[in-house]
Simulated scan of single mutants.
Amino acid sequence: MGFFEYLGRNYDLVLIELLNHIKIIAIAIPIAIGIGVPIGIVVSRSKRASSIALYGAGILMTIPSLALFGYMVVLLAPLKAGIGVTPAVIALVIYSFLPVIRNTVVAVNSVDPRMIEAARGMGMTNWQILFRVRLPLTIPIIMAGVRNAAVMGVSVATIAYLIGARGLGYFIFSGLGRSNFNMVLLGALIVSILGIGTNYGLLALEEIITPRGLKIEREK
């Protein structure tokens, strides 16, 4: 059976596993952003705190993905959630912390102090400065971290098939087990396309949410 013939016969299965794969990423990345960005904002006020946070996130990221999935299975087993989407999502959130927190810290600290002083001179509170000055100016840097986390998540989610989370890993790992190289090639191609599409999709989102003034500055 040729590659395109296999694709035609298994189109429905491809779509199902693609949606399963996207579901894992679509749950994990917003959670990582919702936790990582506030942590990055808080710890950015102190060099010591930011160093500790980044060091901790770095240690978590150096754990091999298979080992991390193994830890999740064992830790969540008493809650009857050790197999499936839940451990996969938690593992992806953990892996996403470093790029999200790191870029948030760098972004917040890169804002020109003169702009902060000008905002204070206009009577803005710390919260107003955060949401009206710091965050709008740091969107491109924070989004770069989100893109890194999302593209990495596409790859890591493939391995989540081994713990029952389904997804595109089915084609790669089942294909290897059956020596069916059409399955392996199909899975690899779709994962690659999904990773590239995720990157450019988030770039388009970044373009939409970036303040107009920053776009004009970049064009210059």
Results as ranks from 00 to 15, higher is better:
Ala160Gln: 03
Thr138Asp: 05
Ser192Cys: 13
Ala157Gln: 07
Val154Trp: 00
Val100Cys: 04
Ile52Leu: 14
Leu194Lys: 04
Ile22Cys: 11
Lys47Arg: 12
Gly197Ser: 15
Val111Lys: 05
Pro78Gly: 13
Leu54Asn: 11
Asn103His: 03
Leu189Arg: 02
Arg132Asp: 13
Ala160Gly: 12
Ile27Tyr: 02
Asn20Leu: 00
Val89Asn: 02
Asn10Phe: 09
Leu189Lys: 00
Thr158Val: 14
Gly34Glu: 06
Leu189Asn: 00
Ile216Tyr: 07
Gly36Trp: 01
Met115Glu: 14
Thr125Ile: 15
Ile33Cys: 06
Val37Arg: 00
Ile27Arg: 00
Ser46Met: 10
Ile33Ser: 06
Gly153Ile: 10
Val14Asp: 06
Val100Tyr: 00
Pro99Arg: 06
Glu5Val: 10
Leu68Gln: 09
Ile39Gly: 04
Leu176Arg: 07
Ile29Tyr: 02
Arg48Met: 12
Ser44Gly: 07
Glu219Pro: 07
Gly58Leu: 02
Asn10Met: 11
Thr138Gly: 12
Arg102Ala: 09
Leu98Gly: 05
Ala144Cys: 07
Ala188Met: 05
Ala204Leu: 15
Arg178Met: 14
Ile83Pro: 04
Ile196Asn: 07
Arg9Ile: 14
Phe3Gln: 00
Ser44Ile: 07
Ile196Arg: 11
Leu79Gly: 13
Leu162Tyr: 07
Leu203Gln: 06
Pro211Ser: 08
Ser50Pro: 03
Phe69Ser: 11
Ile190His: 01
Ala67Asp: 09
Leu214Thr: 14
Val106Arg: 09
Ser50Asp: 09
Ile196Asp: 04
Ile63Arg: 05
Val74Phe: 08
Val191Leu: 08
Ala118Asp: 08
Glu217Asn: 10
Ser174Thr: 08
Ala81Val: 13
Met115Trp: 04
Met1Lys: 07
